[in-house]
């Protein structure tokens, strides 16, 4: 049951634009004892439904730049094949470390951006006032 709520929370964060950052992978490896590759497989499968649901809603509510989406997707599919090929060449322990490094590299700048910056906001507001 707890898996349900963890997955629900991750999907909600993803749909809100906060990010999901593979937190489900962390939960499944550190708490559920799954192998790194199995957890990644579940996360991808999970994201297929989560991003599919969000995109279905966004199609009606937001403007999607379809031309760019198609170009990015073409590159993305080629990149995914290359990434999977590399996955097959490296040891699981190294994969886990790479995953941890990816979280730190994406999380640290995001943390600094998310920290309150009252002084700057005040200045911005003053300069934007007519």
């Amino acid at each position: 049951m707890i898996d349900f709520f963890v997955a629900l929370g991750v999907a909600l964060l993803s749909g809100l634009g906060v990010g999901s950052g593979g937190l489900l992978v962390v939960w499944l490896t550190l708490r559920r004892g799954l192998s790194q590759v199995a957890a990644q497989g579940i996360n991808l499968f999970f994201f297929l439904f989560s991003s599919g649901a969000s995109t279905a809603v966004n199609c009606f509510r937001r403007r999607i730049a379809w031309r760019q989406v198609i170009l990015l997707s073409i590159g993305g599919v080629v990149g995914a094949v290359a990434g999977y090929a590399v996955l097959n060449m490296i040891r699981p322990a190294l994969l886990k470390k790479l995953f941890g490094a990816m979280l730190l590299l994406t999380g640290t700048p995001a943390l600094f951006r998310a920290l309150p910056r009252r002084k700057k906001e005040k200045t911005d507001r003053q300069t934007s006032d007519p």
């Binding site: 950052g21 593979g22 992978v25 991808l44 170009l71 590159g75 080629v78 990149g79 290359a82």
Partner: peptide
């Protein structure tokens, strides 16, 4: 766009997230 998509796809294919 093609290069950025490829980089995002590479990370997703390798790490299952992060793209």
């Amino acid at each position: 766009a093609l290069i950025l998509g490829a980089a995002a796809g590479f990370i997703n294919g390798l790490l299952g997230a992060g793209g």
